[in-house]
C-alpha cells in the first residue's frame, strides 16, 4: 500500500503541499474531520494562522484525535503555523492557543516581525548538499530546544528547521518554492 499523507485542511496554504507530494509521486488527501484523520499514515500541518487553526481543531472535533495520534508517533511535518501547533511551548501566542508538544521546542510567534519584515534567503541545511531557498512569512523561530531535538538549520543563530524522531518542523515555507528536498526528507521518514 502506498503511503497516504494527510494535509490538515482547516485553513492555510494547503494546495502547494499537495502539489509538492504529487510531484514526488506520493498520495495526499485533505483532512477536516476525525474520520479523515484516522485514515492517514502521516500528516502535514501547513502554514496559515495558528490561532485560527487552533480554534478550528477544537470545533471540528480534531483536537483529541490529533493529540492521540501524535502521542502514538504519527509522522508529522509542520510548516510555520504547523511548527507552532506542534511545539511544546508557544510564546507571543494567545492564552487559549493550543500546542500539542509533539516536538520539544519553545517557539516564538511572528519572531521575525510583521509582513514588511518577511523575507526570502538561502539557507544551509544539515544533510543537504546545496543551499535551500527559504521563504519566511511573518515567521516564528525556535528559542529553546529540548534534548533529542536536532537543529537542521538556523537564521541569525535562531533555529528554523528542527526534527525530533518522526516530527519535522520548519519556520519557513518549502511548499512555496519548487525545491522538493524537504518533502522528500519527510517522506523518507515514513515507513
Amino acid at each position: 500500500m502506498p503511503v497516504k499523507v494527510g494535509l490538515l485542511a482547516l485553513q492555510g496554504a494547503i494546495e502547494p503541499h499537495a502539489l509538492a507530494f504529487q510531484a514526488l509521486g506520493a498520495t495526499s488527501v485533505e483532512v477536516r474531520t476525525p474520520d479523515q484523520l484516522a485514515a492517514v499514515d502521516a500528516l502535514v500541518i501547513p502554514g496559515g494562522e495558528s490561532t485560527t487553526m487552533s480554534k478550528l481543531l477544537d470545533t471540528s472535533g480534531l483536537s483529541e484525535p490529533l493529540a492521540k495520534r501524535l502521542a502514538d508517533g504519527l509522522p508529522t511535518f509542520g510548516t510555520c503555523a504547523g511548527m507552532i501547533i506542534l511545539a511544546r511551548t508557544v510564546l507571543d501566542g494567545r492564552v487559549d492557543q493550543q500546542s500539542y508538544g509533539a516536538i520539544d521546542v519553545t517557539v516564538r510567534r511572528n519572531a521575525f516581525g510583521r509582513q514588511v519584515d518577511s523575507f526570502e534567503a538561502d539557507l544551509a541545511i544539515d544533510g543537504l548538499a546545496d543551499p535551500f531557498h527559504a521563504v519566511f512569512i511573518r515567521a516564528p523561530f525556535v528559542e529553546r530546544v529540548g534534548d533529542g531535538v536536532e537543529v537542521l538549520a538556523s537564521v541569525d543563530g535562531h533555529p528554523v528547521l528542527c526534527r525530533q524522531g518522526v516530527v519535522l518542523v520548519s519556520a519557513f515555507h518549502p511548499e512555496l518554492t519548487d525545491d522538493l528536498r524537504l518533502h522528500e526528507l519527510f517522506l523518507s521518514s515514513i515507513s
Partner: peptide
C-alpha cells in the same frame, strides 16, 4: 538580513497563500 530580500513577489503573494480558507 545579509543575503536576504524583503518585499519580493514571492513573499507578498506568500502571505495571501497563508490567508486562504479563512
Amino acid at each position: 538580513r545579509s543575503g536576504s530580500s524583503t518585499g519580493t513577489q514571492l513573499v507578498k503573494r506568500g502571505l495571501a497563500e497563508m490567508l486562504k480558507g479563512g
